[in-house]
Computed example of a mutant assay.
Amino acid sequence: MPELEISPANVVQVILWSREGPSAGAQLREFIAALNEDEQAQLTAIAWVGRGAFEPEEFDEAVATAVAEATTPTEDYLMGMPHLAENLEAGLEALGIDVTGEEEDLL
C-alpha cells in the first residue's frame, strides 16, 4: 500500500461530490483546487490506477506522470474524466486502501 499525501477521507469527499453531478460541481472544483500539488497528483494517480492506465504497483510512477504531464488545472482534468467516482473507488480498492470508515463519517 503506497504512502498517501492525500487523506482517504478527501478522496471519498471527491467521490461523493462527483456522484452528485452538476449540483456539487462548484464545491468539487474548489475542493480539488485547494489541494496541494502532491495531493492533486495522487488523486489523479488513484483515478488512473482505477481505470487501468497504471497497475497498483506503478502508483509512484503514476504520481510522477501526473506531475510531469499536468497541462491543465487538476480540477478541470478530473472533472472532465468520465466515471471519476468509479475510477477513484476502483483505484482505492486496487491500492488496498479501505475507506469504509471515511464513507460512514461523511454520509
Rank of each mutant, 00 (worst) to 15 (best):
M1N: 13
M1W: 11
P2H: 06
P2M: 07
P2A: 14
E3K: 11
E3A: 04
E5N: 12
E5C: 05
P8N: 08
P8Y: 00
P8L: 13
P8S: 08
A9F: 06
A9T: 10
N10E: 08
V11P: 13
V11G: 04
V12E: 10
L16M: 13
W17Y: 06
S18L: 10
S18A: 14
S18W: 11
R19P: 02
R19Y: 05
R19D: 07
E20H: 13
P22T: 07
A24M: 12
A24Q: 09
G25E: 12
A26K: 10
Q27L: 05
R29M: 07
R29Y: 14
E30T: 13
E30L: 08
F31T: 01
I32L: 00
A33H: 15
A34P: 03
A34D: 12
L35C: 11
E37P: 01
D38L: 05
D38W: 07
D38F: 11
Q40N: 11
Q40E: 09
Q42I: 01
Q42H: 02
Q42K: 02
T44S: 15
T44E: 03
A45V: 07
I46W: 08
A47K: 00
A47N: 11
A47R: 00
V49H: 02
V49R: 02
G50F: 06
G50K: 05
G50V: 01
G50R: 09
F54R: 00
E55N: 10
E55S: 03
E57R: 15
F59R: 02
F59G: 01
D60K: 07
D60F: 09
D60Y: 04
E61W: 14
A62Q: 05
A62N: 04
A62W: 01
A64D: 12
T65L: 14
T65K: 12
T65C: 05
V67D: 09
V67F: 10
E69D: 14
E69I: 01
A70N: 05
A70S: 06
A70Y: 00
A70I: 08
A70D: 04
T71D: 11
T72R: 14
P73K: 12
P73I: 08
T74E: 14
T74N: 03
T74Q: 05
D76N: 02
D76G: 04
Y77D: 12
Y77N: 03
L78C: 00
L78S: 02
L78H: 06
L78N: 01
M79E: 01
G80N: 04
P82W: 09
H83Q: 13
E86C: 07
E86M: 05
E86H: 02
N87L: 03
N87D: 05
L88P: 00
E89P: 00
A90N: 14
A90M: 10
A90W: 09
A90V: 08
G91S: 13
L92D: 03
L92K: 11
E93P: 13
A94W: 07
A94E: 06
I97P: 07
I97T: 09
D98R: 15
D98I: 02
D98N: 01
D98T: 11
V99F: 10
V99W: 11
V99K: 03
T100D: 04
T100C: 12
T100E: 06
T100R: 12
G101Q: 15
E103Y: 05
E104H: 15
E104I: 08
E104P: 06
E104C: 09
D105T: 13
D105Q: 06
L106C: 13
L106G: 12
L107R: 12
L107S: 13
L107E: 10
